[in-house]
Amino acid sequence: MKSKKKLVIVLTILCVIIGVFPLVYIKNSEFGGADGAAEEVITEINPEYVPWAESIISPPGGETESLLFALQAAFGAGIVCFGFGYYVARKKFKPEEGNAEELFR
């Protein structure tokens, strides 16, 4: 278990490094969101293309959009962490959990 704890820490740090690296390394970029430039490629390939549908509701601005994205993440993280909390507490108070390795025998 101890070695796995180390592994978890190392993996988490790696994730952060991979995420932060572009921010440090690439200076002249705003890291724009991801829907628009495929649009650019499309207009480049076919300049006459007109989107034939529009989003029903679109957030009025960046602030509202980030609110909704934050809510999405918070909602998801809430459920994931509730689950983990439940399982950890169960193991603590009802320790009948087998060893992880035994699962695969």
Binding site: G19, I26, F69
Partner: peptide, 20 residues
């Protein structure tokens, strides 16, 4: 399901200079 929910809300900067 919640895990997919969280991850698809996280726009992470990438080496190409944009986020996904």
């Amino acid at each position: 399901g919640a895990y997919a929910f969280v991850l698809s809300a996280l726009k992470i900067p990438s080496v190409t200079g944009s986020s996904s």
